[in-house]
Structures are given as structure tokens and as C-alpha cells.
Design a protein around this nucleic acid. Structure first.
Lengths: 203, 203
DNA sequence: CGGCCTTGTGTGACTTTATCACTGAACCGC
DNA sequence: GCGGTTCAGTGATAAAGTCACACAAGGCCG
């Protein structure tokens, strides 16, 4: 059974060969897929779970750049694969993930032999580039209270979330104190209830 | 004569065909290559000159995302070409530029037939992704005075530069007043001399 | 159970950056 | 030389980041 849509587009024999040569790797929550400076071993195809990609500045502060989920391709790896440079960011598994690791040689062959594979890779690249451009815009021009509110809104469906202020600060690329103060203000307004490691949405 | 290194890697007949079907377009200083929302017409290969790519936030503020120079590929276009989405950013010619515009069909054929072309495109993508990641880090965590000083340092060789505070603010993604104040402080320290539309480096 | 340690949160004081609302200076074209 | 436009400077205020600490919640272990 094919487990990643980009492989489903491959012609019969090629797909068969790929599937027989690849084995899915299992990564648990908290596991590091790669660290800043690591050389790239191959192109990870994410089958399921979620992986966040974040980078740390000289100041020691970190920011989450984007997330990968089921059916994603870790496009960041391709550039490193091509140039031989190390990663600038690190990838941390959030929900347990299964990953196909496509080595350089096989990646080159797939790019050579499948137009659909190329298309999938290019589309993925385009999306990532757009994501990062939007992130730049957000970080440069949006107010932190709006960004925090927006982040919370997208998860509000769950009623409450388990996250520390520090982790939330990394999501937004700011300082823990800033998050604490903004959250406290939202609690004063009656929109949230705070407890250690947990944020509950009122109503 | 081949004018873009990525075309030099093509096999004889293919290169010949490409060069005969493409004509270089000339863009003058200030000309807009594409605007936010425009659909993508093809992949621009920059032969010479420089083009800056910038985006404007909802607030109306803009920030320069990256520059393209001789031998660059406008990788941003590929994603738009693939997905059919419009551009999120705009490209403005700084120094008069010549550009080959590779239409979708030809791009697909080159990707299909030349491993070196693919490699060039992938490398370019990787570099752009790295540039944007570094920009996120810079915008999120670096102090404005350091960023301004760094920007100025990289051009200090020229003795003086013609740029308005507003343009410099767009380079850094901040407000004009902030740039004015920081520059004034540097002038007070005797490091710069300011005049309308011009910054001179002392010594 | 109580003490101790680790991790997470709250907050005051202060600096840096952004925003708003102006003023005035420099240049351009008649 | 006059009037309009573009640039630059600046005070007041708000938002965000930094530093330094106090304290609270939960886990662990004797």
C-alpha cells in the first residue's frame, strides 16, 4: 500500500522499486529529526504525525518556522542535499510520526523519471516559500496581541490546550514574559482561564 | 553566446533550441517585473542587473525579502507557476536588467530533459529558503540599530549612498521615523554625514 | 507527610521600537 | 521667487523586549 501521495503518481515498476527499497522510520514525540548544523541524509517524506521546524537565533531565542504533517515533503532538506550545507533549523516531532527517508541517489532518479514527482516537489517548495514570506510579514508588522489571539483562535475548538508560556513564546518568536502578560490580560478580560501548563477557553 | 549559466549546462541541441526561442527582455530601473496578485507568466532568468523582491503588509508597510542579480533564477515564480496562485510579493528593478522569460511548457521540458537544469533550480530554491529563514530570525530577534549598522556596513565601501530614509525603512521592514532617529544618532557619534537623499560615511 | 528541587508563572523597572501628529527644510518646475 | 511636493526631524505616547527577581505548583524521596 502506498502511503505518501507523491509516490502514488509513480509508474508501476518505479513505485514498486521505491516501496521495496524504502522502509518507514518511526519517530516519537520529542524526537529530533535533525538539528542545526547537521548534514542532510536524504529527503524525508512525512507519512503521518506532525513535525515542527524551528530555528534559534544568536540571542538564544527560537521561533517556529512551519509545520509538516501527513503527506508533506521536507523541502528544506532538498536545498541542503543539493548544496551539501548543514541545516540552519531543527525539526522536532510533535505527534509521533512515520517518515520515508529518500536518499540522494533515489531522489535524483525520481526527479529524472517522474514529472509528477517533480511537480509535487515544486509545489511543496512554492508553499514553503509562501509560508515563510507570510511569516516575515507577520513578524515584521503584526502586533503581538493580534498574533497571539490568532494563534489561540486556531486551536480554540479544543476547549483547552496544554502548552507552557515558554513554548507559546517560541511559536510566536517572542519572550516568555510578553506571552505571560498578554495571556494574563486576556484572563482579566474573562476570555481565558490559566493554570500551570494549560490554557482553557471560556465558553 | 549563452548568457545564463544554467543554460550552459544544457546539451547542444537543447541549448540551441532554447536560445533561439527565448529573447531577452530589457527592464529599466524602477520597472515592476510583477506585482502582488499578478499571475505568473513564466520563470524569469536574470542575466544581469539587480531586482529586489519585497512584500507589503496589511498595515501598508513593506519589507525587502531578497535580491536577484546576474545568473539568478526567480524561484518564487516557480511555485506560482505550479500552483497557478498569484504572487504574494512584488519585484522591482533596481539596476537595469535583462531577463529571459521561460514559459511553463519550456520549463517543464527543461526539468524533464536536463539533470543540471534541475540541480540549478533546486540549488536556487535552497538558497532562497535559507535567505528567508535568516530574514525571519533577523526580524524576530535582532535589534534595529545592529541591523541598520550591518546594512550600512555592507555598502560602506562606496563612501556614500543615495537612499531616502523611507527606502531604508523598507529594506529593514521598519518605520521611517525609526530609521531617521537611528541615523541621526550615528551622525551625532560622527560616523555618518546626512543630507537629503544621501548618507556619507566618515573617513 | 514534609522538605527539597525543578519547572512554570507573575511582575516591576527600564530600554527599545512603533505609532501618531506635527514642523520645517530641500528641491522642482514654472 | 513662489507654490507644491518630497524628505527629514522630533515630541509624546503605546507596545514590545530585557533583566532581575519572587513565588507557586507539582514531582520525588526519605
Amino acid at each position: 500500500m502506498v502511503q505518501h501521495s507523491i509516490l502514488e503518481t509513480l509508474s508501476g515498476p518505479l513505485r514498486k522499486e521505491v516501496l521495496s527499497s524504502l522502509q518507514s522510520l518511526h519517530f516519537e514525540h520529542g524526537k529530533i529529526l535533525f538539528r542545526a548544523g547537521d548534514p542532510c541524509q536524504g529527503l524525508p517524506l512525512v507519512l503521518n504525525g506532525t513535525v515542527k521546524v524551528q530555528m534559534t537565533g544568536l540571542s538564544g531565542h527560537s521561533i517556529v518556522l512551519y509545520r509538516m504533517g501527513a503527506d508533506d515533503i521536507c523541502t528544506l532538506s532538498i536545498g541542503c542535499l543539493m548544496t551539501g550545507d548543514g541545516f540552519r533549523a531543527e525539526a522536532v516531532v510533535e505527534e509521533d510520526a512515520e517518515v520515508f527517508m529518500v536518499p540522494r541517489g533515489l531522489f535524483d532518479r525520481l526527479m529524472d523519471q517522474s514529472a509528477d514527482f517533480r511537480l509535487g516537489v515544486m509545489e511543496s517548495y512554492g508553499r514553503r516559500l509562501n509560508d515563510l514570506m507570510l511569516l516575515v510579514e507577520e513578524v515584521a508588522f503584526r502586533r503581538m496581541d493580534e498574533r497571539l489571539a490568532h494563534w489561540l483562535e486556531t486551536r480554540a475548538v479544543e476547549g483547552s490546550i496544554r502548552i507552557t508560556h515558554q513554548e507559546l513564546a517560541v511559536e510566536l518568536g517572542t519572550a516568555r514574559e510578553v506571552v505571560s502578560r498578554l495571556l494574563k490580560e486576556l484572563e482579566r478580560q474573562g476570555k481565558l482561564r490559566l493554570s500551570r501548563g494549560c490554557i482553557s477557553f471560556v465558553q
